[in-house]
């Protein structure tokens, strides 16, 4: 299948990008890595008049440590999350998830910002933003705003980004020596979108778990914080009973979709198993 014809713009600043969007009367799509957008264009599921390529906007590039926060430019490629030392040191959960995202060819082009902006409920990175308590830096015609991950993912493919807004960077609280984390997913083939997956970031005080953040994906229309399960482990040591209690509590956290290939009841079962495995393998991660 061939895409319908479109015009192409490559602005070199956010202001130009917003102007380009306005100039197309909103009938435009931003393109970052293109790994999700281009197939959609080829299948004519989307057919914008203008494609606005974000790749030349300097603010969207680079990874740097701003005090206690790691700023990850939206254009950071999936592949860089595997190798970038700052990410490995300060956002280890992101680095742990990265090998499970697609395949090398796609990781070479796909961007973290594109993945988070798209917010596929089966994607690894959006859920990890929840687990890490990241903030999204969003640019609009009226300037910049920040949205916490907990408020960002709203519904199926729906985020706090308004039409014409651009996700510029992700701000991740840097993990320290007290942090422990774990990532895992269950996929039929390596690199596939998972049947169920998730990550945990927490602090450990002796044997006790403090401030746990558990985020799961492929368990509903958005990535999900497992707050009931978190409550079961917060302030406790992770013994078998605590883990079992968290697994029971998880049922109230998720509302998986039912489909012929993976029934909702099966996803609930897998999520419980996954949570148990994650909690058993929580370890220091930076």
């Amino acid at each position: 299948m061939k895409a319908r014809a479109f015009a192409y713009a490559r602005p070199s600043s956010l202001a130009e990008a917003h102007a380009a969007f306005a100039g197309a009367d909103g009938d435009a799509s931003f393109i970052s890595g293109g790994q999700s957008l281009v197939p959609a264009l080829a299948m004519r599921l989307q057919a914008p008049q203008v494609l606005i390529d974000l790749s030349a906007i300097p603010e969207m590039r680079g990874v740097r440590l701003d005090g206690e926060t790691l700023r990850i430019g939206a254009l950071t490629r999936h592949a860089e999350t595997l190798t970038e030392p700052l990410i490995r040191a300060h956002a280890p959960l992101l680095a742990a998830a990265a090998p499970f995202v697609a395949h090398p060819a796609i990781r070479n082009r796909g961007t973290v910002g594109g993945s988070v902006a798209l917010a596929d409920p089966a994607s690894e990175f959006p859920a990890m933003m929840l687990a890490m308590g990241a903030e999204m830096e969003i640019s609009g015609v009226d300037g910049m705003r920040r949205v916490a991950a907990d408020d960002f993912f709203q519904d199926l493919y729906q985020t706090a980004i308004e039409p014409g807004e651009i996700l510029v960077a992700l701000h991740v609280p840097a993990a320290g020596p007290r942090h422990v984390c774990a990532f895992d997913e269950m996929a039929r083939r390596r690199g596939d979108y998972a049947m169920v997956g998730g990550g945990i970031l927490a602090e450990r005080d002796g044997a006790v778990i403090v401030n746990p953040r558990i985020a799961l994906f492929s368990v509903g229309p958005t990535p999900v914080r497992a707050r009931n399960a978190e409550a079961e482990i917060a302030g406790k040591a992770l013994d078998a009973d605590t883990i079992a209690a968290a697994q029971r509590a998880l049922d109230a956290d998720i509302d998986p979709l039912d489909d012929a290939e993976i029934p909702a009841a099966m996803r609930r079962h897998l999520a419980r198993v996954l949570l148990g495995r994650l909690l058993r393998k929580l370890e220091t991660c930076s």
Partner: peptide, 13 residues
């Protein structure tokens, strides 16, 4: 033999 069929056979859900 999909995971769904294997888990069904095992009575897991």
């Amino acid at each position: 033999m999909t995971p769904a069929r294997i888990l069904k056979a095992l009575g897991a859900y």
